[in-house]
């Protein structure tokens, strides 16, 4: 076992790992941060997306030891300092961008990464950016709408509800 230290959601943390310990396992089992979900084993579904050094990555497809020392942000670190929902989170609630909630952490993390790179994306850019995040509940309508709303753009033209 090797002790791996990272900065997760602004706090320095460490946990014991094997070579094969995935970042998702490090977060979930090592640190008890179960907001990061695992929905597939082929790096497709995106439920496990977190930010490593500011970039969205699939935490189920990275070894914990390969990102030792990194700055990691998870869904647990997305709320405002006062505990209120962050901009992307709030937009997802306002526009019903989630149903069962299982893909939601990955969706929020990918959406936040998109808006960091591209603050005013078009609908097509949002859809393209979310290609690696599968949602089975929403048909994506309200997710795309929520991301556009979170970017501060006018969503009045999008079909109601």
């Amino acid at each position: 076992m090797t002790k791996v230290t990272m900065v997760v959601n602004g706090k320095s943390v460490s946990a014991e790992t094997e070579g094969r310990t995935l970042l998702s396992g490090y977060l979930r089992e090592g640190l008890g941060l179960t907001g990061t979900h695992v929905g597939c084993d082929t790096s497709q579904c995106g439920a496990c997306v977190v930010h490593v050094n500011g970039k969205a990555v699939k935490s189920c497809t990275i070894f914990a030891q390969d990102v030792a020392g990194a700055e990691v942000r998870t869904i647990e670190g997305m709320a405002n300092a006062d505990g209120s929902l962050g901009v992307v989170q709030q937009a997802f609630q306002d526009h019903h961008g989630l149903q069962c909630g299982f893909c939601t952490p990955g969706m929020v993390m990918s959406s936040a990464a998109l808006l960091a790179e591209n603050p005013k994306p078009t609908e097509a850019e949002v859809r393209h950016y979310l290609e690696g995040n599968i949602c089975r509940c929403t048909g994506y309508h309200n997710i795309v709408k929520a991301v556009l709303a979170a970017s501060g753009q006018d969503i009045a033209a999008i079909p109601a509800e």
Binding site: T34, G35, I75, E76, M78, Q89, H96, G101, T104, V108
Partner: peptide, 15 residues
């Protein structure tokens, strides 16, 4: 707006 969303959006859901 859905009350359950708060826990799902903050990683506090319990699956």
């Amino acid at each position: 707006k859905r009350r359950e969303d708060i826990r799902f959006l903050t990683g506090q859901g319990r699956y």
